[in-house]
Design a protein around this nucleic acid. Structure first.
Lengths: 231, 231
DNA sequence: TATCGTTATATGATATAACACAAATTCACT
DNA sequence: AGTGAATTTGTGTTATATCATATAACGATA
C-alpha cells in the first residue's frame, strides 16, 4: 500500500455561501450591530455581502425560522426588539430546558469531561480578570454546552442553542457592566461542585441561579436603556 | 367614515408556493406517507408538485431547520427515522415545556377559555366514540394548545408546536391501537378539573401523565414494528 | 477478473432575469 | 396649490440557466 497518502489531511469542506451569510448575520445580530426593529431586505443584505439573492434569502429565512430574526406575514424580515417580556419568557424556557439537560447529564457525564469543564471555568476566571470579554463569551458557551452535550439529548441541545441565539442578541449589553460576571463566577463554582458530586438537583438549581442572574442584569440594562431613549 | 367597510374581512393573502409546498410536505410527513429514512430531493419534490426548484428548496430547508426533516451535512434532506431514543428524548422535552406552559397558563386563563376547553374535551369523547380519528387529532391539538396559548408565552408555544411536529410524524401509528385514546380521555378529564380548580401542579402532572401514556403507546408500537421488520 | 480512468447522470448551489404587488413619487390638469 | 392618475421604485417571489461535485455506469488495460 502507498503509505504516503495516509499522512494527508482530508480537504475541509468549505461552507456554502448561504452558511457564510447566515453566520455573518447571526454574529451581527448577536453582537447587537443592528438596531432593534431594523428591516433586513434580501437585496440589501445580498449587496452588502456581495452575493446573490438566493443564498441570502435562504440565510435570512433560516434565521427567522430559528427566531433569531423576526418574520412578518408579508415576508419581510426584521431584527427583533428586545422587550422585557421576551427576556422574561426566554429565561423561564431556559431554566426548564437547561435544568432538564443538566439533570440528564449528571448521570452520564464522564469524569474526564467534568475535569475539562472545571478547567474551562478556570480559564473563564482568568479571562474575566483580564477583561477579555469576547473570550469570556466563547468560554462560557463551551462551559455550559459541555454540560448539556453530556446529556446525550441532541434535540434538546439544539433547542437550548436556539434559546441562546435568541437571547444572545443582547447579552453583549451586560458585559462588563452590572456585575453579572463576578456573581456568575461564584455560580460557576457551584455548578462545578455539583457536577463533581453528581448532584442533579444542586446542579439544576445552580444553573437556575446563573440564568436568572444574567437575566436580571439584562433586564436592568434594558430598563436603563429605556430611560435613555425617553429623552 | 364608511362603516360598512370595517365589517369586511381582509382578503386572505394567498399562500406563497413555498408555503404550499411546505404544508404539503409537512402533512405528508406527519401522516407517515413517506418511508422513514427516505431521501427527498429538491428536483424530485419539485416535479412531483409541479413547481420550480426555488420554492421547493426553501420549503425543504425550512422543515429541516424545524427538524421535521433531517438535513445531512452534504445538503441532502431525509425523512427522519423513528427511533426509541428520539421518542424518549422528545417526551422528556415535552414534559418540561408543556409543564411550564400549563403552570403559567393556570393563573392567566379566563373562565370562558376553560369552558371552551372543557367543551372541546366533550367533542373529543364523541369523536373517539365514533372512531373519527382525524377529527380527534385536530380536536386534541386544539385542546392542548388552547391551554398553552393561555400562558401568553409566544416563543414557548412555538417550541411546543415544534415538538408536536417532530413527534407528529408517527403519532398516527398509535391510533386507534394500544388503548392510548381511552386512557387519554380519563387524563383529559383530570386536566380539565385541574384547570377549573386552577391547580398548576395538578395540571402539570395530569399533562405529564397524558404525554407519557402517549409515548408509551408509541414506544410499544415501535417495538412491535421492529419485530415485524425482523422477519 | 480486477483495477482504474473516463464518461454520464443526478443533485445541490448560485446567479440572474422576470414577475407581481405595493408604496412612493412624479406629473398633468383643474 | 390641490387632486388624481400615471409612473417609478422597492421588494418579495418564482423560474431558469449554469456551475461544481458526487455517484454510477461503462469500458479498457493489465
Amino acid at each position: 500500500m502507498a503509505t504516503a497518502l495516509e499522512g494527508l489531511t482530508p480537504i475541509g469542506r468549505s461552507e456554502t455561501l448561504a452558511q457564510m451569510v447566515r453566520s455573518q448575520l447571526k454574529e451581527a445580530v448577536m453582537a447587537g450591530r443592528f438596531s432593534p426593529g431594523e428591516k433586513l431586505t434580501i437585496r440589501g443584505v445580498a449587496s452588502a455581502l456581495n452575493v446573490s439573492l438566493t443564498p441570502t434569502r435562504e440565510a435570512l429565512y433560516n434565521l427567522a425560522s430559528e427566531r433569531v430574526l423576526e418574520l412578518r406575514p408579508d415576508g419581510s424580515v426584521y431584527v427583533p426588539e428586545v422587550t422585557e417580556e421576551r427576556v422574561i419568557e426566554l429565561t423561564k424556557i431556559r431554566v426548564a430546558l437547561e435544568g432538564l439537560a443538566s439533570r440528564e447529564a449528571v448521570d452520564k457525564i464522564s469524569d474526564a469531561e467534568i475535569t475539562r469543564i472545571a478547567a474551562l471555568n478556570n480559564e473563564i476566571v482568568k479571562a474575566d480578570a483580564k477583561g477579555e470579554y469576547s473570550k469570556l463569551f466563547s468560554l462560557n458557551w463551551q462551559f455550559h454546552f459541555g454540560i448539556y452535550q453530556a446529556s446525550g439529548m441532541q434535540q434538546l441541545v439544539r433547542m437550548i442553542e436556539g434559546c441562546w441565539m435568541m437571547s444572545g442578541s443582547y447579552l453583549n449589553v451586560i458585559y462588563p457592566k452590572y456585575g453579572e460576571v463576578s456573581d456568575g463566577i461564584s455560580n460557576h463554582l457551584q455548578i462545578v461542585r455539583a457536577l463533581q458530586k453528581r448532584d442533579g438537583e444542586r446542579l439544576a438549581s445552580a444553573l437556575n441561579m446563573d440564568i436568572n442572574l444574567a437575566a436580571d442584569a439584562l433586564l436592568s440594562a434594558i430598563q436603563h436603556e429605556d430611560l435613555y431613549k425617553r429623552h
